[in-house]
């Protein structure tokens, strides 16, 4: 349990492996990039503005929320506050990387964190939890997903609504299926049951009454703390 004492590598091969592992997620996100491009155009963003947002923010759900409250003049403060709230769940995800990423140089660690999303963070973390010491998976997968996200945003904005509703093809289910697969891999045995049940119950309950992504933070904190307290006894 002294994970933070062993060195972590950061190789080109690791980055390429990250990109390869992210392929299904990148393809799945293309549909949503197209939809986002269309929605951004309808909300009044220019092609340059929509593409710039996808490149600099790279966080789908918060971008859709921003588009939802966009107007003329742009409500700058409201958009920024909404973004903070929707993306606050990343605090916990970054914290979980601490034992390994603290072994990387600051530039590599803080640079890689720019590319952290809900779907490539599990790829990097699973590698660490399997006992691997490769830290460039987040960067490689993130760069790949960022490029497909930006390209599909631009394409959606320029081309308009070609693909229609991604729900028809079940593409909205990509992320759900991926999370289910991640959980199968993360399952370490019966000891995970209690924290996971607590996380699920709290998340569903909070989701029912509080808008935004607070349910992720509430559920994840409740579940992980219950697990930590039980393990300590």
């Amino acid at each position: 349990m002294t994970e933070h004492l062993r060195p972590v590598t950061f190789t080109r091969a690791g980055a390429f492996r990250g990109a390869r592992d992210a392929l299904p997620m990148a393809l799945g996100s293309v549909a949503f990039g197209l939809v986002f491009g269309v929605a951004a155009r309808q909300a009044g963003l220019s092609l340059a503005e929509a593409t710039l947002m996808s490149a600099l923010v790279f966080a789908g759900s918060s971008q859709f929320v921003a588009i939802g409250i966009w107007g003329s003049p742009v409500p700058v403060f409201a958009v920024i506050v909404a973004t903070l709230i929707v993306n606050a769940r990343h605090l916990l995800m970054g914290a979980a990387l601490r034992p390994w990423y603290s072994r990387l140089s600051r530039g590599r660690a803080y640079g890689s964190l720019f590319f952290m999303t809900d779907t490539n963070w599990p790829l990097q973390l699973q590698a660490f939890l399997r006992g691997e010491r490769e830290g460039a998976i987040l960067l490689g997968s993130g760069l790949f997903m960022l490029s497909t996200w930006v390209a599909s945003t631009a394409l959606g904005h320029a081309g308009g609504a070609i693909i229609g509703d991604p729900r028809t093809w079940g593409l909205d289910f990509t992320v759900v299926a991926f999370f289910a697969a991640v959980l199968v891999k993360l399952w370490r045995g019966r000891g995970d049951a209690l924290p996971w049940i607590v996380a699920a119950v709290v998340a569903v309950a909070v989701h029912a009454v509080v808008p935004g992504f607070w349910h992720v933070i509430a559920g994840a904190l409740a579940g992980s703390l219950v697990g930590a307290v039980r393990d300590a006894r």
């Binding site: 769940r89 916990l92 034992p99 599990p122 959980l183 607590v198 998340a203 509430a218 994840a220 409740a222």
Partner: peptide
């Protein structure tokens, strides 16, 4: 605690 975060975050997203 950190080791319990991954599963708990994914469960909280998925549930």
């Amino acid at each position: 605690w950190l080791r319990h975060i991954p599963g708990a975050v994914i469960v909280a997203l998925l549930a």
